[in-house]
Design a protein around this nucleic acid. Sequence first.
DNA 1: TGGATTTGACCTAT
DNA 2: ATAGGTCAAATCCA
Length: 334
Amino acid sequence: MELSWPESVLSNRERVMEELIQGRELASQLCRVLDDHKSTLVSGCGGGDVGSAEGLVNKILGSFANTLLILNGKEADGEIVSGDQIQGNSSGGGSADSSSWDANHAIIKSEDFHEEISCKSPSTTFKDRRGSYKRRRTSHSWTRDAQDLIDDGHSWRKYGQKVIHNAKHPRNYFRCTHKFDQSCQATKHVQKILDDPPVFRTTYYGNHTCRDYLKASELVLDCTSPRESSNYIRFGDIKQDHPFFSSLTSVKKEVVIKEEKPQPSDDHMMASHHHNHSSSCDYIVSPHPTAFESSCPLSGLSSTIDPYDHEGDVMSGLIVEPYYFDDEVLQYEF
DNA sequence: TGGATTTGACCTAT
DNA sequence: ATAGGTCAAATCCA
């Protein structure tokens, strides 16, 4: 699959590369510091913390290496390291492969990529494929529970609603608006799981490969304060699809949702919330509000520039624990 | 009129 | 057999 880069992104590409290279160097330095620290520790005293920190550093290095590979247009030749692989290394969760991840040697293995190819078999037409699908694996998904339906910076289109067994409220199915024009495979399910207080559970599947990230790249490069740059530059590529990071730009509670007419139910509200791009602007607050004035979608680099990472492999090098963020609970399920 | 939503049908996994 | 996920025609709406 050959993707051409938008001009604005190409113009920023060198800066992005510089930032990534610098970040990788810093992470490498941190790794060395950790090594020194570990050697001074008495065994059994805090070694686990250092180990987990090392795993985190390895993930960071992996992300940098993958991104650099992608930016260099090598994604077609080499294989991107998946989050599963990284996770297996750091958590020791039963993975047989315990070799440590070397950021300088990206491995490539993507079953999802092969799936993608098989789906495009010319022998099957759209009509023939009605209702046919592969039930998603439970991996590569993450959920967010929130009291409000907040915007995650992407444009979604509702494609279905289903009554779920033993559930009070129907589940709403959304896919990325750019599913067809940009082959973006990201989908999400939204379901109200509690009435009082209302809690909505959003489950995300796949990674955005659409190119809604033009403004986001400007946002990334616009940050001035150290804190912001640490948020946006270092991890701007991750924040896009992981609710944890997109939450940084979301405001809950304070958000006033304009309603022309009263909504008959929360389930209906769920649909209207995703109505279009412009409505989603109402929910986004940025440290630099002007960055959002002309465009709503907030995306980063990682998933959008990796057309093969449909399941969020590359950027899934995150700590797999629930995140508590305001009134939200984030859970990552790999 | 084009894009988004609704909703019943269809298909697969369990 | 059933539940869950997706498709696509019909409908809505700006």
